[in-house]
């Protein structure tokens, strides 16, 4: 039986290279930082030095993009070994990745490719989660992805797949509100219905981010969180309760104060929503 992951009620940002000095030299008013695991799954050098020093100040979350938990070609044992070594060194709040696949046995796309929502895929994902959690010696969080197409062979809705995945594997959920917003637009489902149908007791973290509008919305993490995503966040906080919230920005990264202002919006929405729920 995998260990449980306790709730962590806080607000954080992604630790990106452009802000290293801010975090190393000052006291940035965040409760945690999240890093892209793969950027630190290296043998040594400055990246690990920075992360180790930041870890002395703040809790850290390891968020991966290359586990390929939905791969029908198995997990990469060398990847898991390196991730475990990093986790043992950093002692993160938790380790997360995405419900997607990135690789076959021959190639790696380095992109979060979509899963068909079928019983075959569900069984495979749960087997892979068992393998990953066993290899890491800890339970993990998995994030609902943005997607740009659905498959003709789908047998269930995304939220049914995610709920069953959490139930069968015992994994926790990283709820990306922007991804729900983007996928709801792209596939014509009701974002609020999706939110309500997810197992809220398994949610440990919420991601907020910006996207690029168009006939098909794209999850680009290159602009501020939009109004529709803030509205959905309000609903998510009411449903999930006190969990970690973080803003992801991976491109067009602004000065840190701008991101901190955006994080204050999240704090304010969460406080307002929780006080209403409590009342």
């Amino acid at each position: 039986m995998m260990n449980t992951i306790s709730r962590f009620d806080g607000f954080g940002l992604g630790l990106r290279r452009t802000h290293y000095a801010d975090f190393l030299d000052g006291d940035v008013p965040v409760d945690f930082v999240e890093v892209i695991s793969e950027n630190f799954m290296v043998d040594g050098g400055n990246p690990l030095r920075v992360l180790t020093q930041v870890r002395e100040k703040l809790p850290v979350i390891l968020h991966g993009v290359s586990m390929s938990i939905g791969s029908a070609h198995g997990l990469d044992c060398e990847y898991l070994r390196r991730l475990r070594a990093l986790a043992e060194r950093i002692e993160p709040l938790w380790v997360s990745d995405h419900l997607c696949w990135t690789r076959t046995s021959a190639h790696n796309s380095h992109d979060l490719l979509p899963m068909p929502y079928t019983e075959e895929a569900l069984r495979l994902v749960c087997d892979n989660i068992d393998h990953a959690q066993e290899a890491l010696g800890r339970a993990m969080l998995f994030e609902n992805p943005s997607s740009y197409l659905t498959f003709p062979e789908d047998e269930m809705r995304e939220w049914e797949f995610v709920a069953e995945m959490a139930k069968r594997s015992g994994c926790y959920l990283l709820l990306d509100v922007n991804n729900i917003y983007v996928s709801a637009h792209n596939h014509g489902f009701d974002a609020s219905e999706c939110l309500r149908a997810l197992p809220h007791d398994r949610v440990r973290q919420i991601h907020l981010a910006g996207h690029t509008d168009g006939e098909i919305k794209i999850d680009t993490h290159d602009q501020p969180v939009c109004g529709g995503v803030w509205d959905l966040y309000r609903e998510a906080v009411a449903l999930a309760g006190p969990v970690a919230t973080m803003i992801e920005r991976d491109d067009g990264i602004p000065p840190l104060p701008e991101l901190l202002d955006e994080l204050d919006v999240a704090r304010s929405i969460a406080a307002g929503t929780r006080s209403k729920v409590a009342a």
Binding site: A72, W101, H107, S109, L113, L124
Partner: peptide, 16 residues
């Protein structure tokens, strides 16, 4: 088509 086969085909479409 199995999931393994469909992923291999999807990857081929991404690459080409």
């Amino acid at each position: 088509m199995t999931l393994a086969a469909s992923q291999k085909d999807f990857m081929a479409q991404v690459l080409d």
